[in-house]
Design a protein around this nucleic acid. Structure first.
Length: 673
DNA sequence: CGTCTCCAGGTTTTT
DNA sequence: CCTGGAGACG
């Protein structure tokens, strides 16, 4: 398509047109939900290219791989160009790019490992053991969060935190020794690099003249800092403070205010919603208006009023699941909709289990994105760990993971020996193993020596193969055969043949994905190192694909941001789930972020929105009575069609809840059930 | 010393 | 369901 101004004027509304054609200077685009944000961004890039700006000067930063990929695809489609020099990437992936070039200046070696949450916890545990922290005193999850906050400057050492200071230092030393970086480092280290080496920064500033940041409300201070360092003057950020849902990860939509302070900003507001019916939009507006701390917006829709929002109250999560499955089948039939037009949104991954079961039972194809990510499955992690060790011998954490998988006689006592040796040498485990095998006076027994040598030879020979030449997937397949991973799975899961088959299938899937990546013509360098970096950053994102066509989309609300579906179910709209109990507890009763989350969920829907709130739900081992989410009360009652519970199973309590709901919603007389 | 077996306990959201 | 630990066995 030619993108002369005439065409743009026709294709876009006046505000969108302004956003697309304002290329110079600092622009803040406040883009309400469904206001055509992605369209604006892609047109903007296409327009810049059309104006003769070289693609290499453009840097577009997003938060998820999905968003980055979508943006890139859409620009390519729109311009019909290959655009191999256009940089569209997540903040973290951009960090990797920077570090890949110059990490040696920070004292790391170039084949560094990136540690995901699993590796990170393993390392913290390891350090904790060395420092003799009692295991009970360690809430790993909390410590991990604390470390993240410390590293990104959100918290200082004070009060009771201080007891973990030594642990943190040991954690940091570990990372450095293993030549590994964690997710926070991917932002923090580039900043450090740019600060300490202005000549490196200058190179990037010279190259990227036009910067764009999507989902700006989700930037952390660090990410803002990184952007600020890079940005000269032409920087456009796009965001919506009402959709800020990552504050627990350091996102701070106050960055919008910082941005206005640090740059001479032109603000453009996109307030026309092209996505949802009037009913859905009014519901969303009704909910979000209860938040006090926000930029006031008036989103409006040109679409008709649409159908009312339906609220259901299943007895429990099993019934909720089958209700959702059956409704999807019903609506698909009645409205002639394909399965991929449905989105089922949940607050927590744990909710997925029952819904997945119901889908399986009813033969509904679905994809679940998020959850225990594919790449975090044990069998996949094992393969990746092998590759990591092969790529970076000093990666102790991954070495420990696979040194006895499949079992090769290197158990706890052997590892103790290796550990001691490493401590003596002040080295990594790999070096210690080498020393134990080859040193004259080795503290290792002959048997152990032999086992260790076999392991060392295995890794070395695989390294020879995998680090050069093509055919990565094929070589990995051969490696798995050599270690006979299949037999390992068979013995390990001897009780469940089904589990074995499932795991083998996952590995097969993994290898196929790897192969596809490898032969992708856009992929200029299919090396092992590049693959590993990519895979770690992808960890949560499913390998999306064409695979999802024709399937119901099941996902957390967080994962649904930026997406839309003709029909949306929100499951588990109960107090304690949304707003989540932990969020309420941790924020001293402040539920504004949870409300934004609910707002995001509602605004995913184009035409039809169904919400369910269970009467009871299993929680840990017991069944608890549930109260409908307070946010349901914030939806204007005239937009809602309320369905009574289908079966009268329980007693007074149910009636109380019902009576409450009746008061809120004034059931229309024609609710027949 | 390594492996196997069995049981308990635990799940907010993600790059 | 899946991990991690304790304890028995070879």
């Amino acid at each position: 398509m030619s993108l002369d101004l005439e065409t743009l004027k026709k294709e876009l509304n006046p505000e969108q047109y302004r956003a697309v054609t304002s290329i110079d200077g600092a622009i803040l685009i406040i883009a309400g939900a469904g206001s055509g944000k992605t369209r604006v961004i892609t047109f903007r890039i296409a327009h810049m290219l059309d104006m003769g700006i070289p693609q290499s000067q453009i840097l577009a930063l997003t938060f998820t791989n999905k968003a980055a990929k979508e943006m890139e695809d859409r620009v390519k489609e729109l311009t019909g160009r290959k655009l191999q020099n256009l940089t569209v990437s997540t903040f973290h992936a951009f960090g990797v790019r920077v570090l890949r070039q110059d990490i040696d200046k920070l004292g790391y070696r170039e084949n560094f490992s990136i540690y995901d949450e699993t590796d990170r916890t393993a390392l913290i545990k390891e350090c904790g053991r060395e420092l003799q922290f009692s295991p009970d005193a360690m809430d790993i999850y909390k410590i991990s969060q604390l470390f993240s906050n410390i590293k990104t400057g959100r918290k200082n050492w004070q009060g009771e935190n201080d007891m973990y200071r030594q642990l943190y230092e040991s954690y940091q030393e570990g990372l450095k020794l293993f030549n590994a970086v964690d997710f926070d480092d991917l932002i923090v280290l580039p900043i450090k690099l740019f600060r300490e080496h202005p000549e490196v920064l200058a190179r990037y500033r010279e190259r990227y003249k036009y910067i764009m940041v999507d989902e700006f409300q989700d930037t952390s201070h660090q990410q803002y800092e990184l952007m600020h360092l890079l940005a000269d003057q032409n920087v456009a950020v796009v965001g919506d403070d009402d959709q800020s849902i990552y504050s627990w990860r350091g996102a701070d939509y106050q960055n919008i205010i910082n941005f206005e302070k640090d740059f001479k900003v032109t603000e453009i507001r996109l307030e026309q919603n092209y996505r949802s019916t009037g009913t859905i939009l009014d519901a969303a507006n009704g909910v979000i208006s209860h938040n006090t701390n926000r930029k006031d917006k008036k989103l409006w829709s040109g679409k008709g009023e649409g159908k009312p929002i339906e609220i259901f109250m299943p007895q429990n999560e099993t019934e909720e699941a089958s209700f959702i499955a059956e409704s999807i089948q019903g609506i698909a039939m009645e409205d002639r909709r394909k399965y991929d037009e449905f989105g089922v949104l949940i607050r927590a991954n744990t909710q997925s289990r029952f819904i997945e079961e119901a889908f399986l039972e009813n033969n509904i194809p679905y994809t679940m994105s998020g959850g225990t990510s594919f790449f975090e499955r044990k069998e996949i992690k094992d393969v990746i760990s092998y590759l990591r060790v092969i790529s970076n011998h000093d990666d102790d954490i991954n070495l420990l993971r696979i040194i006895n998988v499949p079992r090769r006689g290197i158990g706890r006592a052997a590892i103790q020996v290796i550990n001691d040796e490493a401590e003596n040498l002040g080295s990594t485990l790999w070096t210690a193993i080498h020393s134990l095998v080859h040193a004259e006076a080795s503290p290792a027994s002959d048997v152990l020596k032999e086992d260790l040598e076999t392991f060392e030879t295995l890794i070395e020979s695989q390294r020879q193969k995998l680090m050069s030449g093509r055919g990565l997937a094929k070589k990995v397949r051969e490696m798995l055969e050599e270690i006979d991973y299949k037999s390992y799975l068979v013995t390990e899961y001897s009780k469940s043949e089904k589990a074995v088959r499932f795991k083998l299938k996952n590995i097969e899937l993994f290898l196929e994905m790897m192969e596809r990546w490898e032969i992708d013509p856009d992929n200029s360098n299919p090396s092992l190192f590049n693959y590993l970096n990519r895979v770690t950053l992808m960890s949560r994102d499913n390998g999306d694909d064409e695979n999802d066509k024709g399937k119901v989309n099941l996902m957390t609300i967080h994962a649904s941001k930026g997406l839309e579906f003709p029909v949306v179910f929100i499951a588990g709209a109960e107090e304690g789930l949304i707003p989540h109990q932990r969020s309420v507890d941790e924020n001293g009763g402040d539920v504004e972020e949870e409300r934004r989350l609910f707002y995001v969920a509602i605004t995913r829907a184009r035409e039809k929105l169904l919400i369910s709130s269970c009467m009871k739900r299993r929680k840990q081992m017991s069944v608890i009575e549930c109260t409908p989410s307070r946010f349901l009360d914030e939806i204007p009652a005239n937009l809602v069609e309320y369905h009574e519970p289908q079966k009268e199973l329980s007693m007074e309590k149910t009636h109380d809840i019902l009576a409450n709901m009746l008061k809120q919603f004034k059931i229309p007389d024609n609710t027949d059930f």
